[in-house]
Amino acid sequence: MTASAIPADDPKRALVHVTPDDARLPHLSIAGGTYTILVGGGDTAGRYCLIDMRVPPGGGPPPHRHDFEEMFSVLEGAVEFTFREETTVARAGETVNIPANAPHFFRNTFDQPARLLCMCTPAGQDDYFLRVGDPVDGPTAPPPSLSADEQEVRKQRAAALAAEYRTELLVP
């Protein structure tokens, strides 16, 4: 019998089957939208994470870059992606991959909500979002009403944790 180049099955790892509205999943208010961590790094041995992003008109993160790959599949609506200072629109059914280390951001500049699936590889962005986001009751729950001071605290927390999660925020 010849040795297999593929490692043996790890019976400690389980099948992950989720629905985006499951109340047990982490639903977080981040960057003006609601992000649901569908599959976290703990589910994939750190290989990737998958996040369901619901982005209202005007929502989206500030310019940033990180040392991991990030892929977005637009499920509903459209968003503008700015990648290395060039802007493109991605609409429902389209996919955008952001290479590691490249400056980018996205914004919903349209009058309808957008919904994206975001895969990061390797995982880690899921943990960052858990530490910087505000928990909400579900994927369609409204974000918390934050004062200007509370918003500033969130921005400072995101900036303080960014380097730990291999991210650089490109805002003053």
Rank of each mutant, 00 (worst) to 15 (best):
L130R: 15
F81C: 02
V74Q: 05
P11F: 12
V55A: 09
T95Y: 08
L75D: 01
E94T: 10
N97M: 15
H17A: 15
T121M: 13
S29G: 14
D67H: 11
L25W: 08
K12Q: 14
C118H: 00
V89M: 05
R65E: 08
R107H: 10
T44P: 06
D126N: 07
V39T: 10
G33C: 05
H104K: 05
N101F: 12
R65Y: 01
G33K: 02
P20C: 04
Y128P: 02
V55T: 13
D67E: 12
T109F: 00
D127L: 12
G60T: 03
T36Y: 07
L75G: 03
F105D: 09
V132S: 07
P62F: 08
I98L: 15
A123G: 05
D52K: 02
I37G: 01
L116P: 03
G58S: 05
N97K: 12
T95C: 13
L28H: 11
V79Y: 02
Q112E: 15
A3D: 15
E86G: 00
T82D: 06
Y128R: 01
D52L: 10
H64V: 06
P26V: 06
Q112K: 15
G42Y: 03
L38G: 02
D22T: 01
D52E: 12
I51T: 14
L50N: 09
E70S: 09
A8V: 11
N101I: 01
H64W: 04
V132Q: 08
P56F: 02
L117A: 08
E94N: 05
H66E: 07
A5F: 13
E85G: 00
N108Y: 05
D10R: 15
H66V: 07
G77K: 00
E69G: 14
G33L: 02
Y48S: 10
E76A: 09
P20S: 11
L117F: 13
N108A: 07
L15Q: 14
E94C: 05
L25E: 08
T109Y: 00
G33D: 02
V89S: 03
F129A: 10
L28M: 11
H66I: 05
T19H: 11
E76W: 00
P63E: 08
A102T: 11
E85A: 11
A31E: 04
C120V: 13
A5I: 14
A31Q: 01
F72D: 06
V39P: 01
G77M: 03
T82I: 08
L116S: 04
G40V: 00
R65K: 15
